[in-house]
Simulated assay, not measured.
Amino acid sequence: MRKIILNLAGILVLASALAQNTLNPDERKRAIAHLKETENNLVSLTRGLSEQQLNFKEDDTAWSIAECVEHIAISEKNLIGMIQMSLKEDSDPSKRSEVQMTDDQILGLIESREQKVKTRTEFEPTNSFGSYAETMKTFRERRKANLQFVKSTREDLRNHYLQFPFGLIDSYQGILFMSGHTRRHTDQIKEIMSSEGFPN
Rank of each mutant, 00 (worst) to 15 (best):
M1G: 15
I5M: 10
N7F: 05
A9K: 03
L12S: 02
V13W: 01
L14G: 07
N21F: 11
N24W: 05
D26Q: 13
D26N: 10
D26S: 14
D26W: 11
K29S: 05
R30K: 14
L35M: 13
L45T: 13
R47Q: 14
L49Q: 00
Q52S: 10
Q53A: 09
F56S: 15
A62V: 02
A62M: 09
W63A: 00
A66K: 00
V69F: 00
M85P: 05
L87A: 05
D90Y: 01
P93Y: 12
S94M: 13
K95T: 03
V99W: 01
Q100I: 06
D104V: 01
I106W: 03
L107H: 06
K118T: 12
T121Y: 08
T121C: 06
E122T: 13
E122K: 08
F123V: 10
F129D: 05
G130D: 05
Y132L: 00
K137R: 08
T138N: 09
V150G: 13
V150T: 12
S152F: 06
E155K: 15
E155A: 15
D156Y: 15
I169Q: 06
S171E: 09
Q173F: 06
S179D: 11
H181P: 11
H185N: 07
I192L: 04
F198D: 12
P199N: 14
